[in-house]
Each structure stands twice: as structure tokens, then as C-alpha cells.
Amino acid sequence: MVQAKVVDENTQVFENVVCPFCATLCDDITVQVKDNKVSKVNGCNLCKGVFLHAHEDWTKPMIDGKEVTYDLAVEEAAQLLARANNPLIYGLAATDVDAQKKCVELADLIGANLDNASSV
């Protein structure tokens, strides 16, 4: 595992980072992080867009627009899916393989439709 270089107390530099934006999947990105925000990154503009804004607009667990506990959000999802007749699972193209595997397993369990961005 590649270790981050520590510049000062609050700043770290990560090298050979993979850019999770397009399927060019560049793996030579250097990312500087200050106070858990990316302060510098050397990829293309699309890559900069990902990293420089990564700390913004984080989601919170919600049901019907109201903030709830994490467990409650997950429980609500399970209840909805346990009762679903014809569920759809869609996406997968912008996350990692572990999550993709779990999406297939969930689809298998509940008899869902499963699709990724290949068909679009």
C-alpha cells in the first residue's frame, strides 16, 4: 500500500492516485489534502473537478427528505425491497467491484432487474 507523505500537521500528499472519473483511469495523480479537503491535484480538468469538490455536498441518511439515523435509512430500504414486486437496481458504473458484487447478490435475492450504464 502506498503511504501518504505528510507535509505538515494538516497536510498530506498522496502519489500514484487513481482518478475515479473516466475509464482512462489514470493512475499517476498526485493529490494534496489539507484538513480533509483536496487542496491541490494535477490531473486533467475533469479529474480536478472530482477531487477539488469531493468534500462538498455530502449526503446524510434521509427518509422522505427528513434526516434519520443511518440504521433507520438502511432498515427502510430493506423493508421496501423485501416487499417489492419488480424492483430495479441501476448504476454500478461509478463505484468499486465490492459494491458491484453486492448489487448482483441483492438483485439475485430479490428477483430484481439489474442494469448498468452499458445499456444507455
Binding site: 500500500m1 502506498v2 502519489e15 500514484n16 487513481v18 493512475d27 499517476d28
Partner: peptide
């Protein structure tokens, strides 16, 4: 086309 540091499988 891949960085040597990212090559080994852990």
C-alpha cells in the same frame, strides 16, 4: 501504462 506502485496484488 500502469504505475509500478499500483501493479502488485495484495
Amino acid at each position: 501504462t500502469i504505475n509500478i506502485n499500483n501493479y502488485p496484488v495484495g
